[in-house]
Design a protein around this nucleic acid. Structure first.
Lengths: 107, 107
DNA sequence: AGTTTAAATGAATATTTATTCATATGTAAC
DNA sequence: GTTACATATGAATAAATATTCATTTAAACT
């Protein structure tokens, strides 16, 4: 394993280990949208979305461009889709019935 | 995205968003070893390793088999290697110089 | 320049997660 | 069965992260 991988992985996993941020990504996979639209779609306060967006943007999991007054967010599909697929495959293959992998208190 | 993916991903990312657990995985990529050996290799208390191993075993990121008195841990390379590679590629391609992705207070 | 809408920031609090230490359980060899 | 080694567990504390709310900054349109 290349040097530096662990640090990148730690930050990457930390950024994604949060239900709000995962929900945001899930929304943005369907279509790019602005901060306010995202807040509405997720029934969350704008400031909460903003706070949570920051680490995802810093890590280039999301990118943003301006459209008029809005800042439109786009998910980096090239990175996210293969990783989500890999986890889904893992779940299918190695955790077919496991309750332990699923019991979850997602809000 | 398949239903259930978000839950699996959340648990998966949470399990990996921890420096102790990542260090354990990094060790085990080199070679399988017992809980005590791992504790020694990482200069950590055995109980801390045990606590941290549990979620990784529950999610089948690690598996364990007994050898005499020891419980030998093996990392699920089929899952872990592609994901680590994907993150490394992401870092190379999208965060070539970014300090934000690297500044880190890993202990 | 002033107004409006959009988004970011900061600081306080709440919540979650990690770590430690003491102890219990398990497993194998004697 | 008793001893010794290996690992797991529980409960308390410490530390990290998330959330909220009030406020500020920013951009675009008039």
């Amino acid at each position: 394993m290349k040097k530096g991988t662990t640090i990148h992985c730690h930050r990457f996993f930390t950024n994604l280990s949060n239900p709000t941020r995962l929900a945001a990504i899930e929304q943005l996979i369907n279509k790019p949208m602005s901060v306010t639209e995202l807040a509405e779609a997720l029934c969350q306060e704008q400031s909460m979305i903003s706070h949570n967006l920051k680490p995802l943007l810093d890590c280039n999991i999301l990118t943003a461009h301006r459209e008029g007054k809005k800042r439109v967010l786009t998910v980096n599909l090239e990175t996210i889709i293969p990783i989500f697929n890999a986890i889904e495959n893992h779940a299918t293959k190695f955790c077919p019935t496991s309750r332990k992998c699923q019991k979850e208190d997602l809000k």
